[in-house]
């Protein structure tokens, strides 16, 4: 099986090198046509491949420059299956926050339609395996409908809030759902699959697995939920003390926000 791999605007952390250990047999059998980490090849070689001549192309990272665009289109032409890997490829990722200043990257899906999208920043090894095996057996999985909360060890119960908090302001050993403590935990608007890693390491979910299937406007939904829980008399104060609204709602997917897509967002300073 011929494969190609490339990193666009990325930190290199989604690169399949990091998942070699998950699917060694796959990579061992695969014939790597293009992957600058392991081969001394350039795009020149890649351009000469006949269209559809490569079985699977893996693309990680977001798109910013004309060169990125060229590579994405090349991959779409040359590869029968294009796999988008990681939050940057899917939604622009953390660098998408640059849109606050009017100039950020776009997700790969704004250019071509990938055949498979593996979520996460980065995808966990187990996620990688599920998606890759699904693909190879002809049943590529889509996003899960369930949120991270399903995998979260914290206790959920109804709550009212008198203030918003940042997670280090909570009781360190508390067991209650972060939302009930006033923390903007993205778990409720994030698809499961990671095993709630961050929640098991003291953090709230920051939202790297993206929205569950069918959920739109996850940032606005999280905001609605939190504001609706506020005791009205305390609300004004709570909103005033709320830090980094854009980061807490759109940490990984500001690039896909309707206002950004319409070019209506961002200030120049």
């Amino acid at each position: 099986m011929k494969i190609a791999v490339h990193n666009l605007l990325s930190c290199g952390g989604c690169d399949p090198v990091f998942f070699l250990e998950e699917s060694p047999e796959f990579f061992r059998k695969a014939e790597v046509i293009f992957w600058n980490k392991v081969k001394d090849e350039t795009l020149k070689v890649f351009r000469k491949i006949p269209d559809q001549g490569i079985e699977i192309g893996f693309l990680c990272g977001a798109v910013k420059s004309p060169e990125h665009e060229e590579v994405v289109r090349l991959f779409r032409r040359k590869c029968r299956t294009v796999v988008a890997v990681g939050a940057c490829a899917l939604w622009g990722g953390i660098p998408g926050l640059l849109w606050i200043r009017k100039e950020g990257p776009r997700p790969l899906s704004s250019l071509v339609v990938p055949d498979l999208s593996i979520p996460g920043c980065p995808p966990e090894g187990s996620t990688w395996t599920v998606y890759l095996q699904g693909l190879l057996s002809g049943r590529p999985p889509g996003p899960s409908e369930e949120p991270v909360c399903q995998e979260c060890p914290r206790d959920r119960h109804p709550f009212r809030l008198s203030d918003f908090k940042r997670f280090p302001e909570t009781e360190p050993e508390s067991r209650g759902c972060y939302l009930s403590l006033g923390v903007f935990c993205a778990g409720a608007v994030t698809q499961k699959g990671c095993g709630a890693r961050c929640l098991r390491a003291g953090y709230p979910c920051l939202g790297c697995y993206g929205p569950p299937a069918g959920l739109t406007a996850r940032g606005e939904r999280l905001l609605s939920a939190m504001v609706s829980a506020l005791v009205p008399q305390k609300a004004t104060e709570a909103l005033k003390n709320w830090r980094d609204p854009a980061g807490s709602l759109y940490r990984f997917d500001l690039a896909t926000h309707p206002l950004v897509r319409k070019g209506k967002c961002g200030r120049s300073d």
Partner: peptide, 28 residues
């Protein structure tokens, strides 16, 4: 063309998130 401007996207973020965010500068 790997420029991702982490020094500017860090501005305005809560200090406690920086260890998580800056880990995304480099996946290696």
């Amino acid at each position: 063309d790997l420029f991702r401007a982490f020094e500017s996207l860090g501005v305005g973020r809560p200090l406690e998130e920086m260890p998580f965010l800056t880990a995304r500068i480099c996946g290696i």
